[in-house]
Design a protein around this nucleic acid. Structure first.
Length: 489
RNA sequence: CGGGGCGUAGCGUAGCCCGGUAGCGCGCCUGCUUCGGGAGCAGGAGGUCGCUGGUUCAAAUCCAGUCGCCCCGACCA
């Protein structure tokens, strides 16, 4: 009723909308330390489902999980020149332990390449030990200047895959494979379409040969780097002396890859699907897919409605769905709270499907299904409700992806574009601009300086324009490659 | 680190200019009536006004300092 219950509309202030949604949907809360957040059960539940799915996908591609320590000797970080240069400004360093100053300071991992490859050096001797395909689920710390719930916090949760291969091409194939896994996950589960491609040198990972990335478009038309996969070449292998004896008997350095996605994905989910009412969660990632809200007037109705509701709950939970397993159903039988209040709460939380069940429905042996994505209501028979609900969830998942893709395409620009037009877009509505690039870092830097837009990726073929741009967006010289330009988070 | 804003009950805020009993809404507790889109009535609990110092008979209010958080930039998943 009161205005403070409603979110600031996206159109009015996207950033305020985002923060309010994250807090009100109880995804996260600010922690006492600047830049740190508590991930609350509603948010962590989404992350858990992401983890579960990704983990299955990693296992299916031959990776195994391990765990490496939080603390890394400071000297390790310094062994790879580019890497230390990239990360030094944002590492947290432990100088004391047990009341004593440490002989060598320990850095709290900002990423684990150094310690993992130091260990790989011990474990790898022969080409028979390759490829080595590992992943770890961990927290990392990066001392960022400016933070934002889920998108950039001092500490965040992620997974980092680390692999070692005998040849450059194998590593390249691995980095590409995992980029594909990410892209499949983001589209198939998050209903968040992404553009994949390779990063420019200016934007690549510190210490990598090449960085591949998945870029998604948020509802304010800015890009979110949702996941990256790096071909590290032999940079770390040389720094940490990770060698193997080849079949031919020569001693060679391995070729590494690393790849990661983080709890930032939860923020991406919010900014892709949230609306002015609250969060919308794609069913496949919703900790609760269906919430049953019983409705009654009289005491007598209360008894029979609650009774029917718990039978419905039991029936739905038992419902055999082919994939992905059982329906995740919650019965909201809280007393002293009106149905309307419950609707608002669950809509804020983004539960994909609501079942309303009242005396009038019971008399007709039906219940009302209400979709969160478009809020459409549909009465269905209690005899077939499991099937209807399961089907509707699939439909919602598909509709969300279609809507997100549609929005992205509407805000993507291709074809000839002048620099002024480009500036107009970046300073106005924003969006993705596919335009030419001469390949020079100077042009990239100039565009960034002028418009805050960067090259998000040099898109993979399937995202490239039918007719390649002829000239560089910035200097007008012949274009070397098509680039996706946008402002980013 | 630059610019802006804000610290008063769990949340949102009024009061501050002009010093003098800390007020309102939401939420919370109890009871009754309610319940198909944020319920109503009655009663109740809850406050070192961010912190430190100063001015004053008296400070949420004035002065100085300090800490913290949020937002916008530079840096980044």
């Amino acid at each position: 009723m009161a205005d403070d219950k409603k979110l600031t509309p996206r159109a009015e202030d996207f950033s305020a909308w985002y923060n309010e949604l994250v807090l009100k949907a109880e995804l996260a809360d600010y922690a006492p330390v600047r830049g740190c957040m508590v991930i609350r059960p509603a948010g962590y539940g989404i992350w858990e489902r992401m983890q579960r799915q990704l983990d299955d996908m990693f296992k299916a591609t031959g990776h195994v999980n391990a765990y490496f320590p939080l603390f890394i000797p400071e000297s390790y970080l310094k062994k790879e020149a580019q890497h230390v240069e990239g990360f030094a400004p944002e590492v947290a360093v432990v100088t004391h332990g047990g009341g004593k100053q440490l002989e060598e300071p320990l850095v709290v991992r900002p990423t684990s390449e150094t310690i993992i490859y130091a260990m790989f050096a011990k474990w790898i001797q022969s080409y028979r030990d390759l490829p080595l395909l590992m992943n770890q689920w961990a927290n990392v710390v990066r001392w960022e200047m400016r933070t934002r719930l889920f998108l950039r916090t001092l500490e965040f949760l992620w997974q980092e895959g680390h692999t070692a291969h005998a040849t450059h091409d194998e590593a390249e194939e691995e980095a590409r494979r995992m980029l594909g896994v990410y892209s499949d996950f983001m589209e198939g589960y998050m209903a968040m379409p992404v553009v994949t491609g390779v990063k420019s040198d200016a934007e690549k990972f510190a210490g990598a040969l090449r960085t591949f990335s998945c870029e998604a478009m948020m509802q304010d038309n800015r890009a979110l780097q949702a996941g990256t996969s790096h071909n590290l070449g032999q940079n770390f292998a040389k720094a940490f002396d990770v060698t193997f004896q080849s079949e031919a008997g020569t001693v060679e350095h391995v070729w590494n890859t690393s790849w990661g996605v983080s709890t930032r994905l939860v923020g991406g989910l919010v900014m892709t699907h949230g609306d002015d009412v609250g969060l919308r969660t794609p069913p496949l990632l919703a900790p609760i897919e269906i919430v049953i809200v019983p409705i009654w007037k009289s005491e007598e109705d209360r008894g029979r409605v609650l009774d029917a509701a718990s039978r419905l709950h039991a029936a739905l939970v038992e419902w055999e769905r082919r994939d992905p397993h059982r329906l995740r159903v919650h019965l909201d039988d809280r007393q002293g709270m009106t149905p309307g209040a419950k609707y608002y709460e669950w809509e804020m939380r983004g539960i994909p499907l609501r079942i309303e069940l009242g005396p009038r429905d019971l008399d007709k042996n039906q219940a009302v299904l209400v979709r969160r994505d478009d809020r459409a209501k549909k009465p269905v028979s209690l005899d077939t409700i499991g099937e209807d609900a399961a089907e509707l969830l699939v439909e919602i998942q598909d509709a969300m992806l279609a809507a997100a893709r549609d929005r992205r395409e509407k805000n993507s620009h291709r074809g000839r574009i002048t620099y002024d037009e480009f500036r107009g877009i970046m300073e106005g509505p924003g969006g993705f601009v596919y335009a030419g690039w001469c390949g020079s870092g100077a042009c990239e830097a100039k565009v960034k300086e002028d418009t805050k837009a960067t090259i998000r990726v040099l898109p993979d073929e399937e995202f490239c324009s039918a007719e390649p741009p002829a000239t560089c967006l910035a200097c007008g010289a012949a274009s070397q490659s098509e680039a996706l330009w946008a402002r980013a988070y």
